[in-house]
């Protein structure tokens, strides 16, 4: 499908880190995709908001600490990062708890951004 503009791609991150591979795989896919110049956005909703929690230390569970890598998203061209405010509130998180600056929005806003995408990739 040829377009006369960049393809709009959104990464929808809904799973917590470590308990499953989704968060880690999602991050890897985001960085691999970002090598190609397209228009990217990421949304963190439900337990996905825990992915961005700062001060994690996974040395005690023998798993690779990958979450600091979220800090390079902006440099890789994933500049629009949306986080669902209600998901954060339910989990007792504030923007200060997160390791990168994000846009805290409601689900309606995320739904509107989703509707503008050519592709939505779930993790």
């Amino acid at each position: 499908m040829a377009r006369d503009r960049l393809t709009k791609i959104m990464f929808m991150c809904r799973q917590a880190p470590y308990g499953s591979v989704y968060a880690y795989e999602g991050l890897e896919v985001m960085l691999i995709f970002a090598a190609y110049e397209q228009e990217y956005a990421a949304a963190f909703v439900d337990d996905g908001v825990f992915d961005l929690k700062k001060d994690k230390d996974s040395s005690g569970i023998g798993m690779k600490e990958f979450s600091t890598t979220y800090r390079v998203m902006e440099d890789y061209g994933i500049e629009k990062v949306y986080v669902d405010g209600q998901s954060m509130k339910d989990r007792g998180l504030t923007p200060d708890d997160l390791m990168i600056p994000v846009e805290v929005v409601d689900r309606d806003t995320i739904a509107k951004v989703m509707a503008e995408q050519d592709v939505v990739l779930p993790f």
């Binding site: 470590y18 994690k56 230390d57 996974s58």
Partner: peptide, 25 residues
């Protein structure tokens, strides 16, 4: 929180430290 607090009053409730630490809790 209130559900877990109530549970901790009725049962012995534990959380595994290394898993808390990994998740920044």
């Amino acid at each position: 929180e209130s559900m877990v607090k109530e549970a901790a009053g009725k049962y012995k409730v534990y959380a595994l430290g290394p898993d808390l630490q990994a998740r920044g809790i």
